[in-house]
Amino acid sequence: MSWSVITAAIWVFAATGTALLPMRYQYVPGITLLILAPLLILWLGSDFGWGWGVAALAAFVSMFRNPLKYFYARARGHQPEVPK
């Protein structure tokens, strides 16, 4: 098994553990996972081809749809509400 797959599996377990935390404790590990994901997706894509890279990107967007919506709204100049 390649290192990119092992790292991706560890990332998935870390993301699942972060999702189980209360909202106030999710920010730091969630942002860290959000930043590391594109690097991991590129690594998987370079090892296994663009099809698997697209599949990994779809899974990433599915998991992080709310933070991505928040950052998209901020980029457009809106002030989205943050859950407490």
Rank of each mutant, 00 (worst) to 15 (best):
L40D: 01
P29L: 04
S2L: 11
L36T: 09
L39P: 00
R76I: 01
L68Y: 04
W52E: 12
R24A: 11
A8Y: 15
G53I: 05
F71C: 04
P38A: 04
W43S: 13
E81M: 09
G51V: 14
A37W: 07
V54S: 11
W3C: 00
Y72K: 12
S62D: 09
F71H: 11
I41A: 09
L68N: 05
P38V: 03
L36R: 02
V12M: 05
Y27P: 00
L57C: 08
A56K: 03
F71I: 06
I35V: 15
F64N: 07
L33I: 03
Q79F: 04
T7L: 15
P67E: 08
P83T: 00
I6K: 10
G17E: 07
P83G: 07
G49C: 11
M1D: 01
P83E: 12
Y27F: 14
P38L: 02
F64Q: 07
F64E: 07
A37L: 05
A9Q: 09
Q79M: 05
L20Y: 00
S62M: 14
V82I: 11
V5C: 01
R24Y: 12
R76L: 13
P80N: 08
L21S: 02
W43A: 13
F71Q: 06
P80E: 02
L44P: 09
F48A: 14
S4N: 08
H78A: 10
Y25E: 04
L36C: 13
S46C: 11
I10W: 09
G51M: 14
S2F: 09
L20S: 08
L68C: 07
F71W: 11
S46D: 07
A75N: 10
N66H: 11
G17F: 06
T7P: 00
E81I: 06
T18C: 15
A55Q: 04
A59C: 13
L39T: 12
I41E: 02
P38I: 03
F60G: 05
R65K: 12
A8Q: 05
Y27V: 15
G49Y: 10
T16I: 15
P22E: 03
L68M: 14
Q79H: 10
A9H: 09
I31F: 07
E81R: 05
L44R: 12
W3V: 00
K69G: 02
L33E: 03
N66K: 12
M23H: 13
L34V: 03
A73Y: 04
W50H: 09
T32N: 03
T7R: 12
K84V: 10
Q26M: 06
W3N: 07
G77A: 06
V28G: 04
M23Y: 10
A73S: 12
L68I: 15
K84D: 13
D47G: 08
A37V: 03
E81W: 06
T18G: 05
A55I: 14
V12F: 15
G49D: 11
L57I: 02
